[in-house]
Design a protein around this nucleic acid. Structure first.
Length: 862
RNA sequence: GCCCGUGUGGCGGAAUGGUAGACGCUACAGACUUAAAAUCUGUUGUCCUUAAGGAUGUGUGGGUUCGAGUCCCUUCACGGGCACCA
């Protein structure tokens, strides 16, 4: 006898989830294997920084990845789904300073905590491949990569400007400079030039740019951002003769405006200015002022344009007119040639500068809309420009460049915004750079046999600067070339270096394999079929990873041109914020609604200001702790909720009510399974095929239920392919709802219900795997649902036998009629005209046209 | 400033150019219960109407089309990225 659905106890997830998590591990369910004759599929979520605890954004990221991994497994792929830790970096050192913990201990203890949290989510990771970038194995091999890059000419050492904190004696990242001051010391940050290590990413600039076009599986948004970052611009360089010995070379993308040039502007960092500064006090002072400013962008932005006349003039190549040369703070040395010719009439910056210093403004492009406003930067026809007059901008560019080439003072040039990647960090907690400084031999790379250079554990953070520098012994070594005493490089590598190749390391299961990039595993698994992460990595990480694939291919480690075939960028998780009148943030539990429905502080009754949905952050006190949710509702509920309702690429507004709704749904399916068991629905009654069962059924509603469920399978599968998980959940709910409407028939038609429920479990398993494993076992099915196949559907059942067919008059809906899909056209017209609402409008009028689209619509045009 | 993206009920959001609002949340009602909770079943864009029914409706204004949330142009608002890049 079947049980009453309302009598079924609520789902006891705490026992079930732990049980299946252990089962998966014990059975090695998630171990990636290369042996089977299956197509491979590599799913990867961007590996986390071990900051302490998993946050809800991680949960979203991992859940999406896990659903993809489990779905692909069910579809018959051999899936690689690994996880690791991006474990070097500044926060560990900050923790050392604040709490007196060693960065290494802090990091590994965080990893332990977070790993437990991931396991509590039931994620299908192959834990045997786990590693942290601060593992000696990992960074040791990374040093080998660094040497290979060095020997292939992809590493160089140059001077570069950095933010220098004069109190802490350290280099600051741009984000650590706040209003021109160091974030920790509060000291005024200086610009300093230091010798640093660079990776020559610009070597690959053409491929990095052009191959973006091949990344069909990437969001357009990310591709556009990368293109802009690389920033290709075409133009020409022009050499101006000066009234001194030296010529000046400028770069311009608007050489067509050269007849409007009224002065030249050169960067304070330009070699010519450096020289002038030695004899000219005014220039020297200007350069010094310029140097003082931070290199942080936000400071630069607010800066007014200023400059100093150099006393030098140049000669216009065509008019021979003399133009003054200014040192100007708005000209960058690291782009183009560090000098520009200025045409104030057609460039905003030049215009601003000319206004300030009273320099002439001369129009050479007529506006296409007839306005006289300057500066005018759009297309138009050239005027006052000698042989260019009458030409459009693009034509004029070509003519002038040709002319400049002919007279020998111009060249067609292409410049990029992308610059070489500085990887030196004056920090302890990072990968040591395997180089030494020898007094005799200069800079010498270590030999492979001397690797790895271990990071010493016994360091202190009690004095400013890099602990590696102040370590008593570590940096002292011998020169690999001459054997004399030498000093190790004490800079460590940027952590973006660590994350630029970790996806290759995952391909190899053997941690002791020293040739890990040379065996067949990388070739087997690469490229990553689905990469998932936050859009905040759209530029740097993804660009560096692309560069590494190309660079390591050049070095002969791998043969991968693009690492990520498909990229998915998920949105942030946000939640409501509350503040007191004085601006202090409040935790949600500190707020309640009073009798009038207004928000107030629980303790004091103060008025509360409800903010909008904002990205979860500790400071705004609007974070949700995944642990607490799992404790209260279980991992399945959390997983379900985090992909419900909102498409994964959009920002996700957290709501406690929505979470509660998912918990109700989990119980709803649980009651369905328990009820099913009591009706003897399950493995034992799946024997007869659907065709026989349907033929003998005799209950149209049940037959329809089965057929509709075929549609559910189709919809869920299609939505999963598109990664619109919110739709997946909607279709699943819909399927469950229709089953509830036929609950009382389950016992009689247990055969048909067995087929439906079996497929329902398989459909839901990627999202809520624990409850599905439990139901799978409870209903007598063999093995793990994880290893089961993805359900297929019968195409003929998906076709609906009766359509609720819409009838329009003049494009306006006037009624519907029930028809068979292949109903005769004339008959449909007849029946459509019989619809009262249609009749009322049509009667007495002439039907000019009938638009009939089979399966879609009928429209009478009057 | 430049480049993207997004605007649909009270809310999150569905909708190959073809019945707008699937599914969920909220709210309301009915059943069950001594009662409440839970559960099950409904209703829920707005306006008019006792009702049947009608009108209206996807940020704004226009266009293409038999038919537009969807395509094109205009404009506004919000969000994101880049930003002295010559």
């Amino acid at each position: 006898m079947s049980v009453k659905i309302s009598d079924i106890d609520s789902y006891c997830f705490s026992e079930v989830e732990g049980h299946w998590q252990r089962q998966w591990l014990e059975r090695g369910a998630f171990r990636a294997s290369t042996g089977e004759n299956k197509p491979k599929y590599y799913v990867l979520e961007m590996f986390p920084y071990p900051s302490g605890k998993i946050h809800i954004g991680h949960v979203r990221n991992y859940t999406i990845g896990d659903i993809v991994a489990r779905y692909r497994t069910a579809c018959g792929f051999a899936v690689l789904h690994p996880i690791g830790w991006d474990a070097f970096g500044l926060p560990a050192e900050n923790a050392a300073l604040k709490q007196g913990v060693h960065p290494k201990d802090w990091t590994y203890s965080n990893i332990e905590t977070m790993k437990k949290q991931q396991q509590a989510l039931g994620l299908s990771y192959d834990w045997e491949r786990e590693f942290a970038t601060c593992d000696e194995q990992y960074y040791g091999f990374q040093q080998k990569i660094f040497l290979a890059l060095y020997h292939n000419g992809l590493v160089c050492r140059k001077e570069a400007e950095v933010n220098w904190d004069p109190v802490d004696h350290c280099v600051l990242a741009n984000e650590q400079v706040i209003d021109g001051c160091g974030w920790r010391s509060g000291a005024l940050v200086e610009k300093r030039t230091l010798f640093q290590w660079f990776l020559r990413i610009t070597e690959f600039v053409d491929e990095l740019l052009s191959e973006i076009d091949n990344l069909d599986g990437w969001p357009d948004k990310v591709k556009i951002m990368q293109r802009n970052w690389i920033g290709r611009s075409e133009g020409c360089s022009i050499t101006f003769k000066t009234n001194t010995q030296e010529d000046v070379e400028v770069f311009s993308t608007r050489p067509d405006t050269i007849f409007g040039a009224t002065f030249l502007a050169i960067s304070p960092d330009h070699p010519m200015v450096q020289k002038l500064a030695k004899t000219n006090e005014e220039i020297a002072k200007f350069v010094e002022e310029f140097r003082k400013g931070s290199v942080a962008q936000e400071v630069l932005d607010k800066q007014e344009k200023t400059g100093v006349y150099t006393g030098i003039n140049v000669y216009h190549p065509f008019t021979n007119r003399e133009l003054p040369v200014y040192v100007a703070n708005f000209v960058l040395m690291n782009y183009g040639t560090g000098a520009v010719f200025a045409t104030p009439a057609h460039d905003r910056r030049d215009f601003e500068f000319a206004q300030k210093y009273n320099l002439p403004v001369e129009r050479v492009v007529a506006s296409s809309d007839g306005s006289n406003e300057l500066p005018y930067v759009n297309d138009g026809v050239l005027v006052n420009s000698d042989f260019l007059n009458g030409l459009k901008v693009e034509e004029a560019k070509n003519v002038i460049i040709q002319r400049l080439c002919d007279i020998g003072c111009g060249k067609r040039r292409v410049f990029f915004k992308l610059m070489d990647w500085g990887v030196s960090r004056q920090r302890y907690w990072g990968c040591p750079i395997p180089m030494v400084h020898c007094v005799k031999c200069g800079i010498v790379p270590l030999e492979e046999k001397d690797l790895p250079v271990y990071l010493p554990y016994d360091v202190t953070f009690d004095r400013p600067g890099n602990p590696l520098d102040s370590h008593p012994t570590w940096k002292h070594t011998q020169c690999p070339m001459c054997g004399a005493a030498a000093v190790r490089e004490t800079d460590t590598l940027d952590t973006f270096f660590d994350s630029s190749w970790y996806f290759l390391r995952f391909c190899v299961n053997d941690h002791t394999n020293n040739n890990l990039l040379e065996n067949g595993d990388v070739a087997h698994w690469m490229c990553v079929d689905q990469y998932i992460g936050g859009v905040e990595h759209a530029i740097l990480h993804l660009l560096y990873a692309r560069f590494f694939s190309k660079a390591l291919t050049k070095c002969g480690f791998v043969n991968v041109s693009e690492p990520f075939a498909n990229l998915f960028t998920q949105g942030m998780v946000s939640s409501p914020t509350y503040r007191k009148e004085n601006g202090d943030w409040l935790f949600p539990e500190e707020v309640r609604r009073n009798a009038v429905g207004e928000h107030e502080v629980v303790a004091t009754g103060e008025k509360v200001f409800v903010g909008g949905m904002e990205k979860m952050s500790k400071s705004k006190k609007n974070i949700v702790d995944p642990d607490e949710i799992i404790k209260k509702y279980g991992a399945d509920t959390l997983r379900l909720f985090i992909v419900s309702d909102t498409p994964p690429e959009r920002d996700f507004p957290w709501s406690d009510e929505g979470l509660e709704g998912c918990w109700r749904f989990i119980n709803r399916i649980w009651r369905l399974f328990v009820h099913a068991k009591s009706c003897q629905v399950g493995a034992g009654n799946c024997g007869d095929g659907a065709v026989i069962l349907l033929a003998n059924c005799g209950d149209e509603a049940v037959v329809q239920l089965y057929k509709n469920f075929q549609r559910t399978i189709k919809n869920v599968t299609e939505a999963l392919e598109e990664k619109t998980m919110n739709r997946v959940v909607a279709y699943l709910r819909d399927g469950v709802n229709s089953m509830y409407l036929q609950l009382d028939k389950m016992e009689i038609h247990r055969g048909i219900f067995s087929l439906i429920i079996r497929d329902l479990i398989r459909l839901m398993a990627p999202i809520v795997p624990h409850i599905c494993e439990e139901a799978w076992r409870m209903l007598g099915f063999e093995g793990l649902v994880y290893n089961n196949t993805w359900p297929s559907y019968e195409k003929e059942y998906v076709r609906v036998s009766i359509i609720d067919f819409p009838i329009q008059v003049n494009g306006k809906l006037r009624g519907t009629i029930d028809i068979a899909p292949d109903e005769d056209e004339e008959k449909i017209f007849e029946r459509a005209l019989a619809v009262p609402a249609v009749q009322n409008i049509v009667s007495g009028k002439v039907i000019k046209k009938k638009i009939f689209v089979r399966g879609k619509i009928l429209n009478f045009v009057l």
